[in-house]
Design a protein around this nucleic acid. Structure first.
Lengths: 340, 340
DNA sequence: TATTAGCACTCGCCTTAGGAGAGTGCTAAC
DNA sequence: GTTAGCACTCTCCTAAGGCGAGTGCTAATA
């Protein structure tokens, strides 16, 4: 990018200041707060250039400048310095994430709370995908004449639960034999591997009713292929009310209503799947309600083939440095606690 | 209450009007809209009386009147006429609540959505208490060397799940024998009945380790005695943003932050336990953030000993008639669908 | 050529003032 | 007991003026 050193300094200063104050930044305040060794007039010229290049915007003629989406983008790509977390924060994280969790759901819920507590943004955590989970054991619990409850335990001791509607008239024996067969043939495989097998061929081996077999397998593998909408966990939805850019009720409503739409949120987050840490700034987001927000996403792993995504949603004037540090910290901590 | 007929009419008119318009009601508009056969001046006198008696308030000297909490209370106790739901609404309810639910959790979640969709208020649904649930079957699924997963099936086919931390060194046999014993001795009892038994005596019968027995029973019965905070399901939290009284960001924040505090919400709702339908108006609510809200609560039964509470939270200027009709309708519908 | 000081100008925000509108309370008449 | 008439009060809306922050331009300077 053709930005000389001083332009980079000025852009950095403006982004940095604006992130803290939420007020347009003027040339004088930059020359006061940052030691650039030039006068406000010179800075004004630089600002004027930066505006023409699309990195800055002016709310109105006689106001200071604020970063444009492109300005933030440049900041994030080239200027940012990710600080390290304090020892305090790290221990806090470990404490909250490790305090004898009982299920993946609890971990994930706690993660949402943690993220929102350590920022003033809204945390979004998607429930983990199970397709990489390695099955260790399956138990079929009869619930009624038309339903059984399938409890799967993964290698790492996390649970996959499914309620299965079965054809009526299935007796306890066929259930038992199906269960035994499932445990013999599927143990040690991930759901994806199971999916990849030739189920029709397997089915022939089976003695139990075809209907029963099919419905159970369908249900067990249901989440693997179709890019299903799973559970969405939120933390700190009210945090955005503290952001000055959301002192407008219409904006607040747009965002809060969006956050209630699990399907949309899931989709927006899932787009970042497999890309590590992603940052979407303002209009880079597809959803119109998010055009004034930035979304930072990352992947978490619960060690056991359970992979999911989490993210932080805030105004474009987000504290990228800190959020990125936090995201990295969370990933590392989860790895330490539940790692492979 | 010493309110003559005309005063009741005037109070009714004011409450009715104010619920619809959210604007202070003047004497002239009453005499126009309602056929009381008297002039505005007369109505003014009545209003003045009603204000002195504490049923009305005046936002400022030259505005119309609005109902006070006490005014709403009188309206709710003595003036209200609960309309019946339209056929459309009833079928809509049945459809949403019956569409092959898989678990109590799903029903309850759906209930929250339904309630908020049919009103412009926020729905609060507490997860069902399990103490009245009749146990039919228990299955113990080993998860790791330190954990087992307890799956209980109730008489009506709903699930009680628990993760139990067990002492290490428990072998499969003692698990199996414990499971068998649990099924023999506890099937057909409610959790409360189980709790009431002399567990120490029972324990003597058991061959398996005492530690194991104790931890499993503790976990199974944990929710019965301690007035535990269960899951809180919300629907339509953004609905309050549409209420004119919440066009103020501070109030919005207060309410939304309160709604994130499951423990407080649970407590506020649970106070109405066992009282059928309750209505708390404005300052009748203990929570300060709810002083300008009304909360209507009722009990739902999922047929199977699973009893819980649900409610609707809105401004004191709530459409009590409609909400009460809806609450009744929901109770009836649930009874029809999952009734005893 | 790059930088700087000086200065007029712009625009949002705050305060103030005035007028319109809605509704009351009081008084006197019915 | 009820009503018409009327002065009064208070909010809301709009316009006007002053303040402050910040810019863009010009001309002088290193």
């Amino acid at each position: 990018m053709g930005l000389d050193k001083r332009k980079r300094q000025v852009l950095y200063a403006i982004v940095h200041d604006y992130i803290q104050t939420a007020e347009p930044v003027g040339s004088r305040s930059i020359s006061r707060r940052y030691e650039l060794g030039v006068s406000p007039a010179t800075i004004r010229n630089e600002m004027s250039d930066l505006e023409e290049m699309g990195f800055l915007e002016q709310p109105h003629t006689s106001a200071g400048r604020i970063p444009s989406d492109r300005g933030y983008r440049f900041y994030v790509d080239s200027l940012l310095r990710v600080p390290s977390l304090t020892v305090k924060e790290v221990t806090f994280m470990k404490q909250l994430l490790s305090s004898r969790m009982r299920s993946a759901e609890e971990i994930v819920q706690q993660l949402a709370k943690l993220l929102s507590a350590l920022t003033s943004y809204t945390a979004i955590v998607l429930g983990p995908s199970e397709s990489q989970a390695k099955l260790r054991q399956v138990q079929l619990v009869p619930v009624s004449s038309r339903q059984i409850y399938l409890v799967g335990v993964t290698d790492g001791g996390l649970l996959l639960n499914r309620m299965v509607e079965i054809p009526s008239g299935v007796d306890a024996e066929s259930l038992a034999s199906l269960q035994q067969w499932l445990n013999q043939r599927l143990a040690g495989l991930t759901l994806e591997q199971i999916k990849a097998q030739d189920l029709l061929a397997l089915q022939d081996e089976m003695q139990a009713g075809i209907d029963l077999f099919e419905t159970v397998m369908d249900e067990l593998l249901g989440s693997v292929n179709q890019q299903e909408v799973g559970k969405v966990y939120l933390g700190g939805t009210t945090n955005i009310l503290n952001q000055p850019e959301f002192h407008d009720l219409h904006k607040v409503r747009a965002i809060l209503e969006l956050l209630e739409e699990d399907a949309l949120i899931w989709e927006a987050m899932a787009q970042a799947a497999g890309k590590g840490v992603t940052i979407s700034i303002g209009a880079e987001n597809a959803l119109s309600a998010m055009q004034e927000c930035s979304l930072i996403t990352a992947e978490y792993r619960l060690g056991d083939g359970l992979i999911g995504h989490f993210g932080l949603l805030g105004p474009t004037r987000m504290n990228y440095d800190r959020v990125l540090a936090l995201v990295q910290g969370v990933c590392e901590t989860l790895n330490q606690l539940y790692g492979l």
